[in-house]
């Protein structure tokens, strides 16, 4: 009876291939989850520590959660540096750079995509080729140009050079080429000028592409260190990354305000991370596209 039941049961030993397949699946999950934890932990640790006192942060062995949740670090951020000013500077520079880049890049991209003019293809190749110049080569004279213009420690000095986004021109051109030309032709017949077609027809249709390029530019500006480092010599003109970098490099008591520095770091990345959470596909598309030729 029992033997019969066992024989009738559908149970059989898994084949070697099945075992191997199962094992692979487990390894895959383990790898991805472990890597994911490794990616998230420094961020989690940063946020948790920003609510600890410095003594609490220094405790050995480490406690993950604050013994007492304190918001004081977030107030201290504004005492150890002109944090509000840095924030404002970053916003102004980011917005200026992004709007400027969208304007000049979309204009050029439209011309390269749609207008037939003498020298178009060679100009496009030349402009694309400038990506290959390592930007440390042009950094010193570009700084001298800004200095000559009297733009050191100004918003225009910080924002204007960043408006040139070659990858943005390339991506927008690719997008404009996908817009059916019939729409433009119809507008031409109605007597619209190039500028009108560009501003009233092409740009509104290109919103997703403009969003992608705009986000890339904004992120680049928000996160950049080197250009503000050479242009902003006054503390009042520092952007967030520069302000943080200077404080983190500083010897002395500020260096030991670990909680406050982590709080400031958290606040500094918050806007981009929030935008990223809502508009993830645009970020990923933009960065991955700029990666793939």
């Amino acid at each position: 009876m029992t033997a019969e039941r066992i024989a009738n049961a559908q149970y059989r030993l898994p084949t070697l291939a099945e075992v191997r397949h199962q094992l692979f699946t487990v390894i895959k999950y383990a790898l991805v989850v472990a890597g994911g934890i490794g990616t998230a932990l420094p961020f989690i640790w940063m946020v948790l520590s920003s609510f600890k006192t410095n003594a609490d942060i220094g405790r050995i062995p480490m406690h993950w959660f604050p013994t007492e949740w304190i918001p004081q670090n977030y107030a201290k951020v504004f005492e150890i540096m002109p944090f509000a000013r840095f924030y404002l500077n970053s916003i102004i520079v980011g917005v200026l750079t992004t709007l400027g880049a969208l304007l000049i890049c979309s204009m050029a991209a439209y011309a390269f995509a749609r207008i037939r003019f003498i020298g178009r293809d060679i100009m496009f190749m030349l402009i694309l080729a400038t990506i290959m110049i390592p930007w440390w080569v042009t950094l010193i004279p570009a700084y001298l140009v800004i200095r000559q213009l009297g733009w050191l420690n100004t918003y225009q000095g910080l924002a204007v050079p960043g408006m040139l986004n070659i990858m943005g021109i390339f991506l927008l051109r690719q997008f404009f080429r996908t817009i059916p030309p019939d729409i433009e032709d119809a507008a031409f017949v109605d007597g619209a000028s190039r500028l009108q077609i560009y501003a009233r027809i092409v740009l509104p249709m290109a919103k997703p592409a403009l969003l992608t390029v705009g986000l890339m530019t904004l992120m680049g500006s928000w996160n950049s260190l080197v250009w503000p480092l050479v242009i902003s010599q006054h503390e009042s003109m520092r952007t967030l990354p520069l302000g943080l970098a200077v404080l983190a490099n500083l010897a002395g008591w500020v260096r030991h305000e670990t909680g406050a520095l982590l709080a400031a770091t958290f606040l500094s990345i918050l806007p981009i991370v929030v935008i990223y959470m809502f508009l993830q596909q645009y970020f990923i598309r933009g960065l991955a596209l700029s990666g793939l030729k």
């Binding site: 961020f43 990354p241 981009i272 991370v273 990223y276 959470m277 970020f283 990923i284």
Partner: peptide, 23 residues
């Protein structure tokens, strides 16, 4: 997981460097 792994890419190098120098 794709979104999570991508997070450091949108974070500024300075923020990453500050957090890691404490880590």
């Amino acid at each position: 997981f794709r979104a999570l792994y991508f997070l450091p890419t949108v974070t500024s190098s300075v923020a990453i460097a500050v957090v890691w120098s404490f880590a």
